[in-house]
Design a protein around this nucleic acid. Structure first.
Lengths: 222, 222
DNA sequence: CCGAATCCTGTCCGATACTG
DNA sequence: CAGTATCGGACAGGATTCGG
């Protein structure tokens, strides 16, 4: 609240850390990237966060202008937390840091991750040089949430919501879905693990070919 | 050391925070971006950091493969901390987060900042759309350190070291130098504040015109 | 002098229990 | 559902001290 711990550094980057550098702050923002959420849903999507810490981060981020609090109209009276436009501008941060960490020698693959985390990883790991001529619209449904993924002109976009028309519709666990993209798991194997896949499987396969895990960085190079 | 606090999140981005998300970690990396430094110099460039925290961060970053420790040959026998190649790949993070924070409604301008911070800010704030036709080589000397800044083809590069040939050579306080770029301080005023400027001032003025502070984000927009 | 290790103090975090 | 209250423990901040 009052005596917030700051770096007192004129560098704009250091001041960004005063805003989003506290523990959990960027993960809270990640969970709001694709739309507002309630306190309880945020807590559920951030395993391990304490309620008081979540309260504190939301308050700090609201003070900084990154998060805005909204109330839904009377019938529901739920409190929603959303990103401001400026807060949503943090998306490149996830892309850049995610791509960097993908080369970590200590990277642990396969741990559970939230649907939002899985969707943001697509932007990090997409390889335009492998996407020549690929056109795809995917509808994803995971953990009560819908996402629309589009590939066209060598670029990828991920948006919240269910697409009106899709080449493939997928429902199930995000880890299994990412296994197809990053682990080169065959579609049949993913189905055996409970992933529902409807539509043109060949589009999914060409979509999956647009992703590739980078080489881990060598230890102690220079 | 042992009981490091982790998020245990499969998201590569979350794992990047396990590496560089601790307090001071990214600022230590910032101070190493343009070359190795000794413990004492790091401490001097990071006002407010405690020695034990710096020790801990350097050890953690070394374990993660971001920092490598080197010894200089016998005559000096100084210990140097450097970034690994992979650590140097964090540069886009400074660019992206710096540019984001530059729009903070609470941004404080004019606080002291380290030479490295000033140099990294150039990459964040450079506006290619304002740099049409500008060609410039600047030699900067601040706080016992030399930097070479080049603008060509609408791009900017910043490297350590003194350029063999330069259009302008500048020595003095980095805050005053940035005042020319971001605060549109006249060159004459900067000289009055003690900045030494030798060479073609018109090149410096065209260089300064390639930078512009963005509008701060509005409070509570959406 | 440089590079830490070692106090000690204060703040923040993590986990759980509890309340409007 | 959306937080507040509480408490132990971990971590940060600051000064001092010690080995090379």
């Amino acid at each position: 609240m009052a005596g917030k711990r700051r770096y007192e550094d004129g560098c704009a980057f250091a001041q960004s850390l005063d805003i989003v550098g506290e523990r959990w702050a960027l993960l809270v923002i990640r969970e709001l990237m694709f739309g507002p959420k309630r306190f309880t849903d945020l807590k559920a999507d951030l395993p391990g966060i304490a309620t008081n810490v979540l309260t504190q981060r939301l308050a700090d981020l609201e003070d900084a202008g990154v998060v805005v609090r909204r109330e839904t109209p009377p019938p529901q009276k739920a409190r929603l937390y959303a990103l401001s436009d400026w807060g949503r501008d943090l998306e490149p941060v996830f892309e850049v840091l995610g791509r960097w960490a993908a080369r970590s020698p200590l990277l642990t693959m396969g741990w559970p991750l939230s649907p939002n985390a899985a969707m943001l990883s697509l932007g990090s790991m997409f390889r335009p040089d492998l996407a020549g001529g690929v056109e795809a619209v995917l509808g994803l449904h995971m953990n009560w949430t819908d996402y629309t993924v589009r590939v066209a002109d060598g670029r990828i976009t991920v948006d919240p919501g269910r697409p009106a028309a899709a080449d493939v519709r997928i429902a199930g666990d995000q880890n299994v879905f990412l296994g197809i993209l990053y682990g080169k798991m065959p579609v049949a194997a993913a189905r055996l693990q409970g992933l529902q896949i409807d539509g043109d499987v060949s589009v999914l396969e060409r979509f999956a070919a647009c992703f590739e895990m980078p080489e881990p960085a060598p230890r102690t190079p220079a």
